[in-house]
Nucleic acid binder design. Structure first.
Lengths: 177, 177
DNA sequence: TTGATATACCTCGGAAGCGATGTATTCTCT
DNA sequence: AGAGAATACATCGCTTCCGAGGTATATCAA
C-alpha cells in the first residue's frame, strides 16, 4: 500500500523523500500515519527493485536531498498494480482508497471500470459482521449499542459507495463506448 | 487488533483456536482475512504473556482441541486496551470497529462514553485527503472522479458515524447519571 | 477403497511496519 | 550569540503478519 502511494505520487513528478512523506501524510496520515522508518526502507526497496532512481541534489533549505524518479519499470509496475490489484486492495478500505487515489494513472476507461467492478462485486456480496449461526444479524436486532453502531456506519458507507460506483462505472463505460 | 479480538471473544466463553478463527473471520474476515499462521502465533504470544491458558480436550469431530480460557490477567488487559486504546485504534477504521465490537465488556457507561468521545474528537477535527497547498480540497472541486469518490464516501461515513456517536454518547451519559 | 472435505493444529521464512534514536544543516526568533 | 524549529535522511531492534507448506483424524460419497 505504501509502495503504491510512493509510485503514485512519483508518477506525476520526481520528488524527494521528505516531500513524499508530506504528501503521503496528507493523503492517509490522519487515518494511518506513515513513520519515516517505514518510508525510507520502502524507498530503498523500490530502488533495489529498479522501480525508481535517486539523484542527490544540494538541499534547497538544509541537508542534501535525494530526488526520486520513477523508472520505466516503475511506471509499468504501477500500472500493473492498479489494473490488477490483489484482493486485499479491493476489500480493505485503507488500501482501496489508495488504489482510488491513483486510478486516474490507468489512462484506459475500460481498465478503470474493470477495477471499480471488482469493488462493486465485493460490496454486492452479502456479508455481515455478526452472525447467529449462519444467519446474518441486522442492526435492529442487536442489544449491544456499539455493535449496532458498526452495522449502522457500515451500511451508510456501503450505500454511499454503491451509488458512486454505479454512476462512475456508467460514465466510464459511456466514455469507453 | 487481532489480540484484542481474541481476548474479546474469550471474555464471553472459552473457545478452541479453530472456533475462534471462525468467529474472527465472521467479524472482520470479509474486509481483512485472518490467516491461521497469524492466529496461532498470536495465541501463543498471549499464552506466554499469561493472558490465556490452554487445556487439551479430545476433539469432538477430529483432532484434539486446545480450549483457550482468558485468565484474570487477560481480563484486566482486555479492560485496559478497551478503556485506553492507542491512537491508531481510534483513527484506523478496521481497528476502531474491533474496539467497538467488544466495548460492551467495559461495563461502566462513563468509561464507554470516554472512548466514544475520543473517536468523536478525531472525527470532528477537520481533515481531508487532498490539499492545494494547505487548503483542503472539496469533492466538488476535483476533476478526478476517483478522488471525488474517496471524498464522497468518506463524507457519508463520517456523517453517519457522527450522528450515531452523538446519540450514543448522550444515552450513555444519561445512564451514568 | 479411494478421494475429497472438514476439523484441528503447527512451523518456517520473509515482508512490512513502528518507536526510538542518531546525524547534519539552515533559518528564525530572542 | 544561543536556542529552537524545520529540513532532510537514515539505522536498529522489535513486533506483527502472511503465504506456503506440513501433520493428523474423522466423515461421507463415488
Amino acid at each position: 500500500m505504501l509502495e503504491l502511494a510512493i509510485m503514485g505520487f512519483l508518477y506525476d513528478a520526481p520528488l524527494h523523500g521528505y516531500e513524499l512523506r508530506k504528501r503521503i501524510t496528507a493523503l492517509t496520515g490522519h487515518v494511518r500515519p506513515v513513520a519515516e522508518s517505514t518510508l525510507y526502507p520502502a524507498i530503498k526497496r523500490l530502488e533495489q527493485a529498479g522501480l525508481l532512481e535517486r539523484a542527490t541534489e544540494p538541499g534547497a533549505v538544509a541537508a542534501p536531498r535525494h530526488v526520486l524518479t520513477l523508472t520505466d519499470d516503475g511506471r509499468r509496475e504501477l500500472h500493473r498494480r492498479l489494473a490488477e490489484p490483489v484482493q486485499r486492495d479491493i476489500t480493505d478500505e485503507n488500501r482501496w482508497f489508495t488504489v482510488l487515489a491513483f486510478l486516474r494513472h490507468l489512462a484506459d476507461p475500460g481498465a478503470q471500470s474493470a477495477v471499480l467492478r471488482r469493488r462493486l462485486a465485493f460490496l454486492e456480496t452479502p456479508s455481515s459482521f455478526f452472525y447467529d449461526g449462519d444467519r446474518p444479524v441486522r442492526a435492529e436486532e442487536l442489544d449491544d449499542p456499539f455493535r449496532r453502531g458498526i452495522l449502522t456506519v457500515a451500511r451508510a458507507t456501503t450505500e454511499a459507495e454503491l451509488a458512486w460506483l454505479r454512476a462512475t462505472i456508467d460514465a466510464l463505460d459511456d466514455a469507453a463506448g
